[in-house]
Design a protein around this nucleic acid. Structure first.
Lengths: 219, 219, 219, 219
DNA sequence: GATGAATGAGAATTCATTCAT
DNA sequence: TATGAATGAATTCTCATTCAT
């Protein structure tokens, strides 16, 4: 019921800042929740287990979160920030930016495969998760679309596929590939570099561009 | 569990054999289950509701299925057959076959979007569903790989991406696109034809081929 | 609902005597029931299983028995007859008759240990079984009492224990011993002869008699 | 399952520690369970009823016990302790000890007749109960065996019956007698003293000893 | 804020029994 | 009589959430 969350600096006693302590408890819960979700999946995850793992009483859980859905959102919000992190400024050129974007996606997915897969499932059950996911997706697609547009303007590339369509499909490709090889228990998942190179090459060609490596080889 | 037709020679009326009745009940249950799953999602779906919708007693549910998982498998097996249906013989040419494959996928996905999305989620919880999905996926990827290989042999296409990798990524693209625009409640989903054309063009280019439409225009 | 049971000789058709067929079905059911009860215990025994084992449809079960209790009674009635069988006429002398009685009891118990143990449990749940058991018990105790009385009259045996009390306690001893070593899974159960000799000796001494073997040895 | 007193130093009121409350609830449940088992028998006893009688929610039942079997064990463990209580030190002489043992058994049985009978039935269904019973039985038989051995050594008693056999059979006699007259609804059950005297006399004679009363009378 | 025992709605599952064929 | 699918009452058990301390 009472979300402490943002530290509003209002301390009642003096000695030990309650909100600092609260912050710590909250964090312990989020960390524990993530571990339990990854181990058991959303449905099977029990609040009791989360509290136990966080070394906190069940009742305390409800001091910070209204429900299982609520912790779950807290868990993925953290990851969301990682995925939404802007690309470094110094990456120049649309293709390089696409590669950088793919690399960021592959890397983040590899590190968070299980929880992201679970998140995808929650999309159907929890409106808020759905929105969160869509927002992340939109960011990624928008970025891709901008890059494609720029490439089409600069080069002389004719395509009957709209930049939006291509961006949607191709970023879907990246996502699906990651889900397949990292999210599911895949026999011999490719290395990060293999994945990034392969996906970027397909991507580049798909929008009518000779990919980097081809260019490099040519030079 | 269901014995079809014990041939003990003792059929009184002949018209409606008992196992025919059983068959009908089973079918009613599968149909009802699908509807309930689509409406409520797997977790929220209640066996009581399935039975109610099928107009049979709860107990009858357990005459045919051991659990919710079991009906769910029965539901998707039917769709699985549709997805696994081989392409028509008369489609000639690798690119045409890719287009045909994409069309089949898009069409099936559109018609079964909700249940297929749920199936994807069950992949994590139910080994059997996982296997079913992987088998379907493998079929699609294998087909794509064969087509890509043939194209690379016939044409003179150099690619640093392996046919397997490309097949995995590109069929992932088709899947993710369908999931995105048909599986989730997408604002303005493209028509089947738009989707197929767009995806096939991206696919063709990605493997270094001038797509059909380009070829057509050129001629 | 309709118990066929006693063959009343009334045949409707001619060819195959229905009541003979019925008799056979009934017997198959009783035999199957006993096996299932012994394997699963009363509570866990399922009517479905009994019918399956008897190679008869579930519905047919109810042609012959109203309930699980009813078959169970039918099963133990058969054994009851065995236990209640009068001792052979030619066994002379009270002690010899006691020995003969013990032998009959031990033998029957050994052959029917499991089902008799189950019967004992049903005593609490099913009035009819309780009565059946009490009747059997009474027979055995009455016989013992008569023997003890005769021995006390013939010999010059003073006892502050009434013949009824002694008969109850001692036949209880025989029963409990059998239950212990044959009914439960006893490590090394004694042979029939060991059991009979030992029990009879204790019995004889308890009522103030020098037991047979002692007498034999003396002579 | 029940943690007694987490010493985290944070007790506000001190008076009623939380684990004391838990202890009380557990006890209420065991008491209620016993009453319900005695009234309905094991099979018919419903967990709902136990909870209702204990005036707690069903869920609380499962805080303390995993199943009906589990409470049942808790119920009989208490009685088991009573049965296993060692005889008073000041009872001298093997025969006096046998009498004391019989008295303890008869008394405990009378006070717990119904539940002990049920326990006997559970012996077949629940391994744990079986073990519990066997352990109690073994204690009683061992004690009897020791007494018989000593008597045979001291006095000059020849017997072809082994002390173990005799101990098993005679303690079975005591048990069966109690079961018969106290466990089942017996018309006119003997008083405790009648039972103890009668059984002890039979027991004494059976192992070749002139019983106490006879000795007393003789003197 | 923290604690953890108590709560009870909710869902799955079983199986004796019925009944249309 | 025989068949076996259909029935649904009855129970167990789970676990998110509340609340007294």
């Amino acid at each position: 019921m009472v979300k402490v969350g943002t530290s509003n600096g209002t301390m009642h006693r003096a000695a030990v800042s309650p909100s600092a302590r609260a912050q710590r408890t909250r964090t312990k819960l989020v960390v524990a929740a993530r571990a339990v979700f990854e181990r058991d999946g959303f449905v099977s995850a029990k609040i009791t287990d989360i509290a136990k793992r966080a070394q906190v009483a069940v009742g305390s859980f409800y001091t910070y979160f209204d429900s299982k859905d609520a912790v779950f959102r807290a868990v993925i919000e953290a990851i969301g920030e990682e995925l939404a992190a802007p690309l470094p400024r110094d990456v120049k050129g649309p293709l390089a930016r696409i590669e950088a974007g793919n690399r960021a996606y592959v890397r983040t997915y590899r590190n968070n495969a299980r929880i992201l897969a679970i998140m995808q499932h929650r999309t159907f059950e929890d409106e808020a998760v759905h929105d969160l996911r869509q927002r992340g997706r939109k960011l990624f697609i928008d970025r891709a679309e901008r890059a494609i547009r720029r490439i089409q303007q600069e080069g002389d590339i004719a395509s009957s596929v709209s930049p939006r369509f291509a961006a949607t499909a191709l970023s879907g490709m990246v996502h699906a590939f990651c889900y397949e090889v990292y999210g599911l228990a895949f026999a011999a998942p490719p290395s990060e570099e293999e994945a990034v190179q392969g996906l970027t090459e397909l991507w580049a060609r798909a929008i009518g561009l000779t990919p980097i490596r081809a260019q490099r080889k040519a030079s």
